[in-house]
C-alpha cells in the first residue's frame, strides 16, 4: 500500500534521510525503530508530504505521490499523529476532532461513535480547550482526530514520548484494536522497545538517516536482537 524507493530528504541544506527503502502492506502494523536524531520524524513527515524528498519516489495505493501536497495526501486517506501530539491548543476537543474530518475525496463517513467508544474521555470533555488536557488525554485526542475520517494509512510518531507508562500500554492496545476492527494500516516510529515488541508485525531499523535492517516477527520477539539497535 505504501512504498518508499530510494528516498532522500533534507531540511534546508542539511540532509537527514538517505536512500530510504521501505514498504508497508495493507493491514499491517509496521514499526521503524532507531535512536534520537536518526531521522524518524523526518521520515514520517516525508511520507505525509510535509517535507518534499530531494530524491526518490513515494507511492501510495499504487499512485506516485512524491510531489503531492500534504493536504492532498490527507484527503487521499493518510492520517497523521505527530510527535508531541500537536493538538490545536486553543480549539476545543470537539473542534480538534472536527479538523480531522478531512473531507476525504472518496468517502463521507465519520467514526465519532467508534472514537468515543475507544476514548470516552473525549466525549466528556468535548468543549474543553485542547491545550488544557493532560499528555495522555491529548494523545487520545490526537488519535481520535486522525481517525475520525477512517484513514486507510495511519502514521504515528513516537506514541510513547512524553506519556506515562500506563497510558502507553493503553495506546498500543488501542492501536491494535483499531487495526483489527477497522483494518487501518499503521506505520509508526519509536525508540521504546516495549511498544515495538507489542505493536509491530514487522519492523525496520534506522541508523543515520537510512534503513539498515528489516526484522520479522520472530526477531522482534527476541529481546537481545532488538536491544542491539537501540543501544546508546
Amino acid at each position: 500500500m505504501l512504498e518508499l524507493d530510494d528516498v532522500s530528504a533534507a531540511y534546508d541544506t542539511t540532509p537527514i534521510l538517505r536512500d530510504v527503502d521501505l514498504s508497508v502492506e495493507e493491514g499491517e502494523i509496521v514499526g521503524v525503530m532507531g535512536k534520537n536524531g536518526v531521522g524518524k520524524t523526518t521520515l514520517l513527515k516525508t511520507v505525509m508530504g510535509l517535507l518534499e524528498p530531494s530524491e526518490g519516489t513515494i507511492s501510495y495505493d499504487g499512485t506516485d505521490v512524491t510531489t503531492t501536497s500534504a493536504d492532498e495526501r490527507a484527503r487521499a486517506g493518510i492520517g497523521y499523529i505527530p510527535q508531541g501530539r500537536d493538538v490545536f491548543p486553543k480549539l476545543t476537543v470537539e473542534q480538534n476532532i472536527k479538523m480531522g474530518e478531512t473531507i476525504r475525496s472518496d468517502s463521507d463517513e465519520t467514526l465519532y461513535d467508534q472514537i468515543y467508544d475507544y476514548f470516552p474521555v473525549l466525549e466528556e470533555r468535548a468543549s474543553q480547550e485542547a491545550g488544557t488536557l493532560s499528555g495522555g488525554q491529548q494523545q487520545m485526542l490526537a488519535i481520535g482526530r486522525a481517525l475520525v475520517s477512517n484513514p486507510d494509512l495511519l502514521l504515528l510518531d513516537e506514541p510513547s514520548e512524553g506519556v506515562q507508562p500506563s497510558i502507553v500500554d493503553q495506546i498500543s492496545q488501542d492501536m491494535q484494536t483499531i487495526n483489527e476492527d477497522l483494518g487501518t494500516t499503521i506505520l509508526f516510529v519509536e525508540q521504546n522497545l516495549g511498544v515495538i515488541r507489542e505493536m509491530a508485525d514487522r519492523c525496520y531499523a534506522m541508523e543515520r538517516g537510512t534503513v539498515v535492517d528489516e526484522l520479522g516477527p520472530s526477531t522482534i520477539a527476541d529481546e537481545d536482537a532488538i536491544a542491539e539497535y537501540l543501544a546508546v
Binding site: L50, A70, D71, Y80, D86, F88, L91, Q95, M99
Partner: peptide
C-alpha cells in the same frame, strides 16, 4: 476554525487536509 487551526499549527493543519 480552519483558519485558527492554521494560525495555531500550520503544519498539523496541512496534515489534517487543510489546503
Amino acid at each position: 476554525m480552519r483558519a485558527r487551526a492554521t494560525i495555531q499549527d500550520k503544519e498539523t493543519a496541512r496534515a489534517m487536509g487543510v489546503d
